[in-house]
Structures are given as structure tokens and as C-alpha cells.
């Protein structure tokens, strides 16, 4: 199972962290954004979920390689009537988790609009991960993996399918985004020192070290290669959960 190695790393909840990243979770109403987030932060499926009112916040610290990353997660309401409220939260987000429902084609058709919104309103280096949620309901599938994957490639976003019911791949999108952001930091295209980037250093000491040398992510590059290989080899049909 690809990404399983994340689980071992990420289950540990830690207090201190090396980076702080702001994410927004967006997508059509009913796509399962809150459930996905709930599973990610509470490790359990949220039953009888209500529509989100406006915006809700939660956070979780994950480990990626040797780095501890605190994720500030802003869960937005998908309903149109909250658009004016939720749009204000895109500001300065480093990552966006764009969720659609694989059993609901209309939730997929609108993702372009969501992506455009996010790109326009959030940080310029916004890392977007497209998540096809409810992958446990294969029999009701309305959006093919290949189609979504193609769209993701065309729009330069990461893509995977997840299930907030079974928990499959629930952590992967968050970690994928975190990894991409760390790579951007490593490559110098993103500077956590600047406010509004959506990322900041956690520990002041670390900050000093990092500002003098950018080589401190050595372990990360290795991780990236590993990750890329997995992403390519990953076939959504080979579900084993």
C-alpha cells in the first residue's frame, strides 16, 4: 500500500514543530471536506456530519522525514451562500486541499472554479492537492480516476483518491502538500521568513540555522525521490484496505 509509510510517521502528535503551515480545505458542499479533516485530526470517521457553517479550524502536527510540521487547517463551508465568507480565508494559505466526491459528478465539474478562486486569493505558491473523496464507494463512482488524474496534470496539481470512511489515504493529501511546500522552501522559491507565505518556522533556533544554510533539508530530497516513485507507481485500482 503506497503512503502507508506516512501513517507510522504521522500518527504521533507532537507539541513542538519545525514548520507551521496554513491549509485551506475547499470543494463543493457534501464532498466530505469536514469528514476528511475530521479523520485526519481525530483518526475516526465523523458520522452524521452537518453542513459546515462558515469556517472551522483545527490543527495537527505531523512528521515528515525529520521535520515536524504543524498544520493549521481551515475547513470551509462548500455551500454557495458561504462563498463570501470562506473566500476571505484563502488569504495567505500555503496549501489547499481541493476535495470532490467521486460519486457525484457535479462536485467534480466545479473544481476548476474552486481552483481558480484559490489561485487568485491565496499565496502565489499555493500547493493544491486534488482529493477524490469517498473512494470506498466504488460501485457509485461517477468520476473516473484517469479523468481526474488528467485534469490534475493539466492544472498542475497533485491528485489522489481517499476515503474518509475507511481512512484510506486520508493523511496522504496533507503530507503530500507539506512535502511540496518543504521542497519549495528548499529550492528557495518560498521563504517562511516572510509573512503571508502561509508557512513559518516553528523553532527560533532552527530558524537561525536555516537562514544561514539551506542545506538542512538533505533528508528531504531523498524522501522526495521516494515519494515521486510511489506517486507514479500508485494505481488506485490496487486497493488493499
Amino acid at each position: 500500500m503506497p503512503f502507508n509509510d506516512y501513517d507510522a510517521d504521522a500518527t504521533e502528535l507532537v507539541e513542538t514543530y519545525d514548520f507551521l503551515m496554513k491549509y485551506i480545505v475547499i470543494g463543493e458542499a457534501g464532498a466530505g471536506k469536514s469528514c476528511l479533516l475530521h479523520h485526519f485530526t481525530h483518526n475516526s470517521f465523523k458520522d452524521h456530519s452537518q453542513h459546515t457553517i462558515g469556517v472551522e479550524f483545527s490543527s495537527r502536527t505531523v512528521k515528515l522525514g525529520e521535520k515536524r510540521i504543524k498544520l493549521q487547517l481551515w475547513d470551509t463551508a462548500g455551500q454557495e451562500r458561504f462563498r463570501s465568507v470562506t473566500r476571505s480565508y484563502y488569504r495567505g494559505a500555503a496549501g489547499a486541499i481541493l476535495v470532490y466526491d467521486i460519486t457525484n459528478r457535479s462536485s467534480f465539474l466545479n473544481i476548476s472554479r474552486w481552483l481558480a478562486d484559490a489561485r487568485a486569493l491565496a499565496s502565489p505558491h499555493l500547493v493544491v492537492v486534488l482529493v477524490g473523496n469517498k473512494s470506498d464507494r466504488e460501485e457509485d463512482r461517477e468520476v473516473e480516476w484517469s479523468e481526474a488524474s488528467r485534469w490534475a496534470a493539466e492544472n498542475d496539481v497533485h491528485f489522489l483518491e481517499a476515503s474518509s470512511l475507511s481512512g484510506e489515504n486520508v493523511e496522504a493529501p496533507f503530507l503530500l502538500a507539506a512535502r511540496a511546500i518543504l521542497l519549495a522552501i528548499e529550492s528557495g522559491s518560498l521563504d517562511p521568513e516572510k509573512p503571508g507565505s502561509g508557512v513559518s518556522y516553528g523553532d527560533r533556533a532552527l530558524r537561525r540555522v536555516n537562514s544561514s544554510s539551506r542545506l538542512s533539508f538533505g533528508s528531504l530530497s531523498a524522501g522526495r525521490r521516494r515519494g515521486n516513485v510511489k506517486l507514479r507507481s500508485w494505481d488506485p485500482r490496487s486497493k488493499c484496505c
Binding site: F57, S84, V85, R87, R91, S123, P124, P195, S197
Partner: peptide, 30 residues
Amino acid sequence: GGPSGLPRPIELHAHDPMRYVGDMLAWVHQ
């Protein structure tokens, strides 16, 4: 606003009252 003007300063949208007020409140909330 942010570094090099991104994200844009909130007051840039003062002409759009909903966005202006919404952005301010969202900022406070965050």
C-alpha cells in the same frame, strides 16, 4: 499585505464592501 504585496492588502478591496469587511473579519478570526 504580504511580502511583495501578496497577498494583497485588505484595504485594496475596500471598494467591495462585502469582501473588505469579510476579509477583515476572517483575518481577525484566524
